[in-house]
Simulated scan of single mutants.
Amino acid sequence: MRLHALAVASVLAVQPSVHAAEPLASSISCMDAEGIPATVVSTKSGKRVPIIYWKSETFSSSGWNPTRRCKEVSARFQEYHQAGTLEFITTGRMNGMPVLCVSKTDGGGCAGLLYTLKPGQNATATLKKLFDIRNKPGAAPLEETTARLYVNFETVVRNKAASGVTSSPSLVKPVAGPNQSAPLF
């Protein structure tokens, strides 16, 4: 019996360790995707994958048109990506307001603000709509706990890249203009 346990331990010791998949994203920025401001992931393989299209004019009257929101939120995505905190996107509350934020773990708390929602806005519904998440086979992945929704960022990028939701470099261009860094709403 002792020899058998030693043999199993020896086999396990020489097995290569399992590592998480290499992140797809090399950078995240706001680009013009066929006339629509979009948060775009540039992958390490050279693909440009739009993950959010900024179409709503809801906040334009307060100075936050789609282009400005795209630039600000895309810059935050990039900041969290570089810091290694962009694992999951979830909902939360900051300063009494509903928000979309990043979390390092499924079930974890907000580690950084992506953007603030309007008072009373349903954060879970907004997150589902933002990433076009549907409750059907083949839709974007989601992790729902009883309290909050968690969307795995890398899986969203992988699914959108695999489903052909990518753009050629000629159709996705950097958005011109200065990058504002004021609060969103």
Score class of each variant (00 low, 15 high):
19 H>E: 15
27 S>Y: 05
168 S>C: 06
159 N>D: 10
14 V>W: 00
122 N>S: 14
23 P>Q: 07
23 P>D: 00
124 T>C: 01
54 W>Y: 05
31 M>W: 06
2 R>Q: 13
38 A>D: 08
77 F>N: 01
63 G>H: 09
164 G>F: 00
23 P>M: 03
184 L>H: 06
183 P>D: 13
129 K>T: 08
162 A>V: 01
15 Q>W: 12
181 S>P: 03
40 V>A: 00
44 K>D: 09
91 T>Q: 05
136 K>R: 12
98 P>F: 00
97 M>I: 08
116 T>C: 07
31 M>C: 12
98 P>S: 03
159 N>R: 02
84 G>Y: 01
180 Q>S: 09
174 P>T: 07
104 K>C: 08
52 I>Q: 01
106 D>P: 08
136 K>I: 11
65 N>S: 07
20 A>L: 09
36 I>D: 00
152 N>S: 11
118 K>M: 14
7 A>D: 10
54 W>I: 04
143 E>W: 05
21 A>D: 15
16 P>A: 06
97 M>P: 00
83 A>G: 11
148 R>N: 15
29 S>L: 08
66 P>R: 01
150 Y>V: 02
63 G>M: 08
173 K>N: 03
185 F>L: 09
15 Q>V: 14
4 H>Y: 09
119 P>M: 02
64 W>I: 07
112 G>E: 13
159 N>S: 04
169 P>V: 07
179 N>D: 15
44 K>P: 10
94 M>E: 15
21 A>K: 07
116 T>F: 10
53 Y>P: 01
176 A>F: 04
112 G>D: 13
18 V>H: 06
183 P>C: 04
32 D>T: 09
182 A>V: 10
140 A>S: 05
111 A>I: 03
89 I>W: 01
142 L>P: 04
5 A>I: 03
127 L>F: 06
18 V>A: 11
69 R>E: 04
172 V>I: 13
17 S>C: 11
10 S>C: 12
168 S>L: 07
81 H>K: 14
178 P>W: 04
78 Q>W: 13
126 T>M: 10
30 C>W: 10
143 E>A: 06
52 I>P: 02
39 T>G: 09
158 R>K: 14
139 A>I: 02
71 K>P: 03
78 Q>A: 13
33 A>R: 06
129 K>Q: 13
110 C>P: 12
10 S>M: 10
122 N>Q: 13
116 T>L: 07
45 S>K: 12
22 E>G: 06
125 A>C: 11
59 F>G: 05
153 F>S: 15
177 G>Q: 11
83 A>C: 12
65 N>D: 13
163 S>A: 02
183 P>A: 09
141 P>L: 06
97 M>T: 09
77 F>V: 00
103 S>W: 02
50 P>E: 05
65 N>F: 01
165 V>Q: 13
171 L>T: 15
76 R>W: 08
163 S>R: 01
62 S>V: 08
42 S>T: 15
97 M>Y: 15
57 E>R: 12
128 K>M: 05
